[in-house]
């Protein structure tokens, strides 16, 4: 038996291309990958039959000149099976497209879980950063006002100024606190959305 490298190289190429497509997210590409992979493997089986020969089972040739019929029978079976699976996958692609408008395979539950946990961590971090920033801002304002207050000349003016300043300061602090609360509440809401404890519904 002579070994011809061309069919083997072709089948290697088909399998490699099929595997690459199989790793894609789009189901249609996965389908193309399955078809290529199936053809590559079928070709491999066919090459195991050895040299080409005369048609078997018809009684037109001597047994030692016949082609090996078994791999051909196996390939026929495999082709039929690949056909069925391809049809099934195609209907699944269609169904996914009907349901979502795309045929991308979404992440599995564990992946979503990990991603949500990461997002929760990020949000928490952002809330903490925001809070720290407001604290810093308030302290800055206070220091500024104190500095202004120290510069005031006469006592009566100073008292009046101080009262006005104190009012202004309080108003600004109130405003700042309100802003901060609003921001934190918004963050919390987003966090709660991301939390989604059951993870049962699809995103």
């Amino acid at each position: 038996m002579t070994i011809s490298l061309v069919p083997l190289a072709v089948c290697g190429l088909l399998v490699a291309a099929g595997m690459t497509l199989l790793l894609e997210r789009s189901l249609a590409r996965v389908l193309a990958g399955v078809i290529l992979l199936g053809n590559g493997v079928n070709l491999l089986i066919l090459t195991t039959g050895g040299d080409a020969g005369d048609p078997p089972l018809l009684g037109r040739a001597e047994p030692d000149q016949m082609a090996d019929p078994l791999p051909q029978a196996m390939v026929l079976t495999a082709i039929v099976i690949t056909l069925g699976v391809t049809a099934f996958l195609l209907s699944m692609v269609h169904r996914a497209w009907q349901l979502r408008g795309s045929d991308e395979v979404s992440d599995d539950t564990e992946d979503r879980w990990v991603r949500l946990r990461a997002r929760r961590g990020q949000l928490g971090e952002r809330v903490r950063a925001r809070q720290a920033e407001y604290d810093r801002l308030v302290a800055e304002q206070r220091a500024e006002l104190h500095a202004e207050l120290r510069d005031e000349p006469t006592r009566g003016e100073r008292m009046a100024h101080r009262r006005a300043d104190r009012r202004r300061l309080k108003a600004r602090q109130r405003e700042a606190r309100k802003q901060m609360r609003r921001a934190i509440r918004a963050e919390r809401e987003r966090q709660a959305l991301a939390l989604d404890p059951e993870l049962e519904g699809d995103e």
Partner: peptide, 11 residues
């Protein structure tokens, strides 16, 4: 939808 997604992995 969830079964199609699960089916894709499985298939």
């Amino acid at each position: 939808q969830s079964r199609i997604r699960a089916g894709a992995t499985y298939t």
